[in-house]
Design a protein around this nucleic acid. Structure first.
Ligand SMILES: [Mn+2]
Ligand SMILES: [Mn+2]
Ligand SMILES: [Zn+2]
Ligand SMILES: [Zn+2]
Lengths: 170, 170
DNA sequence: TTCTTTCTTCGCAAGACCTGCAGATTAGCA
DNA sequence: TGCTAATCTGCAGGTCTTGCGAAGAAAGAA
């Protein structure tokens, strides 16, 4: 994603107005490596500009991605995450805390794919699911009883939606 | 996913009952290559068993995945897709019609990943986004005017949720 | 500066997907 | 046949996201 000043120019060149809300979001997203959700970005934005609406955050993020300044990432955690890094890169997703980190992969173009027959590939998305260092440390301590492999556990142990991205913003 | 008869045994062995609803779903999912959503499976099931509830379809699919008989796939199209193929494989996703196809990738383990520093990878998910053969043919015909690279298109041209998986079931 | 036009913001309703709940029902077994 | 735990269904509720329109504000003209 371009720097705030450049985005300002780009927006005006496109006939879009540059509002205080948009400027704030430009600043909050610039070089933001946390892959925030709209809601977590809204929380942070609200501190700087009380009264800003979640609707406006969604709107601006959508606008930025329409202009190719932002990438939308779906790591399967429910909410879409927004990424100002538009380089060709992939993601590491912590299954415990939900953290998302950039990872640069070489050789993804040379993946041997069988039976493509006719399907033309445009983009490739790779997600590495695992544990980040802090979470791995925690896991080692409390790993006494293993989860049964078969049997229906009605208690949901997955980390889906248990993480609060609001507390992981830069 | 195991065959219906084996699932029947497995369910009973786990203290779970084998109801007509479950048997139907076992049959509909067995060797089903369409990666259906709960809702699309519900539509098909409703034809065979009018009155079956969407809630039961969700429940049974959840049970099956808890037992490791089904994989949950998130291709970013909103609804979770269910996959009876539990082999190590990845997916081709058509950006136009939403179709999901299996693809076997060799060499995914040897992806060069930089700066993993401490992150331990458990599973890798690869999605190839592109166009299936039928959709590519359609695209070629109607590709006269290119989409502007910059500028906010308020008309949503994305294929998200425009596809009806109900009509793609086997 | 003031006016005018067009775009934006905000708040709320609504849609899509999924899960919790509980009363009615039924599979599995003695 | 009868009992009991498991299941099914319908619906309410939760989360994430988008549609809508009245009120407000940016940008350029006068
Ligand atoms: Mn990223
Ligand atoms: Mn598959
Ligand atoms: Zn973690
Ligand atoms: Zn297609």
């Amino acid at each position: 994603m371009k720097a705030p000043a450049e985005l300002t120019a780009k927006f005006r060149a496109s006939g879009l107005k540059v509002t205080p809300q948009r400027q704030l979001l430009f600043r909050l997203m610039h070089e933001n490596k946390s892959h925030p959700t709209a809601d977590s970005l809204f929380s942070v934005a609200s501190v700087h500009m009380p009264g800003i609406s979640l609707r406006t955050v969604y709107q601006t993020l959508t606008d930025l991605s329409s202009m190719g300044e932002l990438r939308l990432i779906d790591v399967g955690s429910g909410a879409t995450r927004f990424d100002p890094n538009i380089d060709d890169h992939h993601h590491l997703v912590c299954q415990s805390c939900g953290d998302v980190r950039d990872v640069y992969v070489s050789g993804s173009g040379q993946l041997d794919v069988n039976e493509l027959d006719g399907f033309s590939v445009d983009t490739t998305t790779i997600l590495f699911h695992g544990l980040c260092t802090p979470c791995r440390a925690t896991q080692e301590v409390s790993s006494t009883v293993a989860e049964p492999l078969v049997g229906i556990s009605k208690s949901n142990t997955s980390s889906k939606n248990t993480t609060n991205p609001k507390e992981r913003m830069s």
